[in-house]
Each structure stands twice: as structure tokens, then as C-alpha cells.
Amino acid sequence: MMRKLFVLLWALMTFGAAHAAGQSVVSSGDINAAGELRMLSQRLAKSYVQLGLEVVPAVALEQLQDSITRFERNLERMQSLAAVVPPTASSIERVRRDWSALRAAVVDPADRTRALLASRRSLDVLESADQLVRTLEAASDSAGARRVNQAGRLRMLSQRVVKAYMLYSWGADTAASRREMDSAADEFARGLTTLAALPDNTADMRAELSEIALQWEWLRTALSVEGAGSYRLVVAEAADSILAATDRLVRLYEHTESR
């Protein structure tokens, strides 16, 4: 109880200081943390499918556990915003409800049926977390926040496309899994093009974007190989590399905005 009261007091003090200074109470860091919820929902489901397929299971288990820890930490941060950005309260509650359902779906060992259920639950979390991001972005109303959101979607899509690929290669609702994979891949390509065209990208940003583009071409080549179960490991490793690079890009945009 005391901890909750402290969090609420901190949030109210933060709001008062920002209001007095004429600044938005929502920072790019908040939008980054909310956007990370989207990615973690897909990373958790992807890791669960990998466990079922026994694709580097030790790494997949570590990623699954890490995703749970980080998601719940970020969700607690979001809860502190509800007091000072009232429109977020309903979105946060929906994220919390959908997250509980997703966590329950990955408790038992994965088979194709459970993996599909986890994927569907992860999409519920993705949708509710995306609504939360949009609410925070509207409250922030800054170009930097929009860039953090855009780059954060790439981070999420790197995990979603591989989750769908793993399901497809497992023969789990192949038509729907293939549509999800293709849709996520197309959105990733468009988003990468949009960010690369921004005129005020720094040299560091351009370097990360080039690295992402290189890894993305490698991943798309692997995704296009039909019926090659041996490519699951290649796809998983490429996704991890893209996630690391997109996360660095998000933080570059975040730090530029916070200066």
C-alpha cells in the first residue's frame, strides 16, 4: 500500500512540475516503454512457439522469462501515468486484462493448439498496447514521440513476423499464419523506408538504419524459402539481430527528443 501511495505521489509531483514549466507530462521514454509492451507481447509468443518447435530452446526459454519480467515492469510504469493522464486509464486496464490471459496461455508446454492460442492472445495485447501508445502520443504531441512510436513498431514487427513464420512452418493454421507473416513483413518494409527518408536522421541513426536494412534483406530471403524447417534457426537469429538494432534506433530517437 505504501509503495502504491509513493508511486501516485511521484506521478502527481511530476505532473505539477511539468505543468508549471509548460511541458508535456508524457515523455518519449514513456512512449518507448509503452511501445515496448507491443514488442514484448510478440516476443513472448514467438519464444513460446520456438520452445514447442525446440528451436534453440534454452535461448527461447530465457527470452520468454525476460519478456514477462520486462512487460510487468513497464506495465507498472504505465500505471503511474494513469493518475496524471486520465485518458490512459482504460487502455492500461485493458492491457492488464489481456496480459493476464496471455500469461495464462504460456504456462503449459507448447503444442500447435496452445501455440495458436498464445499467438491470438498476444494479438489482443498488441492491440490494447497499441491503443495505449496512440493515447500517449496524442498527449505528448511531439515529432520526437512520433519517431519513437514509428521505430518502436519496427521493433515489434521483427518479432511478429518471425512468430508467424514459426507457426506457418509448424503447420499451425497455415493460411492465417502466412497472411500474418506477409502483412507484418510488408509493414516492416514500409516503416523502414519511411524512417530512412527522414531528413534529420543523424549519422548514428543512418548507421543503425543501414544495419537493419541489411539484416532485413537476409531475413526476408530466409522467410521466402518454402518448407525448409532448417531455416528456423536462421530466422530466429536474424530476428534477434534486427530487434537489437531497432531497439538501439528507438533509443537514439528517444535521447534526441529528451535533450
Rank of each mutant, 00 (worst) to 15 (best):
A104K: 08
A11D: 08
Y231C: 01
F6D: 11
Q79W: 03
S100N: 12
L9A: 11
V235A: 11
E208T: 02
S24A: 14
A228M: 09
V133G: 06
Q79S: 13
L136K: 01
T88G: 03
A89F: 02
A105T: 03
L243M: 12
T88Y: 02
P199M: 07
D186M: 09
R103N: 12
A143Q: 14
A185K: 06
W99G: 04
A34T: 01
Q131E: 15
I68T: 05
L219H: 09
A176E: 13
D240W: 05
R70S: 13
R134M: 11
R220T: 14
A82K: 09
A139V: 03
S169E: 15
D173N: 12
E127A: 14
A222C: 05
R259M: 12
R112E: 14
R190C: 02
M181G: 04
A228T: 05
N74F: 12
I68C: 11
R160M: 10
N74Q: 11
S177C: 08
H255Q: 14
A239W: 01
N74W: 01
E208A: 10
S177R: 01
R112S: 15
D66G: 07
A110Y: 04
R134Q: 11
V234E: 11
E72K: 02
M1I: 07
R206S: 06
F6T: 13
P109Q: 10
R232T: 03
R160Y: 04
G191M: 10
W218F: 04
A164Q: 09
V25E: 08
L192I: 03
W218R: 13
D130Q: 15
A17W: 12
P199F: 05
V125K: 07
S80G: 15
R160H: 08
P87T: 07
T202H: 07
D66Q: 15
L249E: 08
D240E: 14
S230D: 13
S142L: 03
R38F: 05
S122L: 09
L209R: 09
L9R: 00
A244G: 07
T256V: 14
G152T: 06
T113C: 02
P57K: 06
G191Y: 06
M78A: 10
L102F: 04
A172P: 09
M13E: 02
L214C: 00
G29E: 08
R220W: 10
A82G: 08
A172K: 04
Q215V: 01
A176T: 12
M39F: 02
A236V: 00
N149I: 00
A118K: 06
A34Y: 02
I31T: 02
L44F: 09
T246G: 10
Q150C: 03
L219R: 05
V84M: 08
A118E: 04
R190F: 04
A189Q: 11
A228K: 11
L116F: 05
A89E: 14
Q50M: 15
V84F: 05
R251G: 08
T202S: 15
